[in-house]
Amino acid sequence: MTKINVKVDGVSYADEVEPRTLLVHYLREQLGKVGTVVGCDTSNCGACTVDLDGRSVKSCTVLAVQADGGEVTTIEGLAGPDGELDPVQQAFHENHALQCGFCTPGMIMAVRDLLRENPNPSEDEIREGIEGNLCRCTGYQNIVRAAQAAAGVKS
């Protein structure tokens, strides 16, 4: 077991983990942060996307020990103290950008990251910016709209 210190959604944790523990499994099983989900084995689907030290990563392809000393933000850490939604969360709701909702946590984290890097993306830039996140329900069109709305871009 290896000792790690991480800050997750604003709370500091010190835990023992097996080195093989994936960050997503640490979040889900040791911290109970089950809002972040696992959708594949090969880093393709992006459902597990979280922010690690300010950048989006696939938490199924990061070991928990690699996050030692780092700061993680998950879907559960986005809403404000009084429950006010992050603008991207709000835009997903307003634009019907989710159906079953399984890809949604990762998709929202990916869109946030995209808008952080490129606050005013074109449609193509949005589509490429979320190419690491698979959705089987929406055909992506309303996710693109939500990203545009969150960016304040007129579609």
Binding site: S43, A110, G132
Partner: peptide, 9 residues
């Protein structure tokens, strides 16, 4: 290469 998340790591 791959996608933004993979390029971050």
């Amino acid at each position: 290469i791959a996608d933004p998340q993979v390029r971050h790591r």
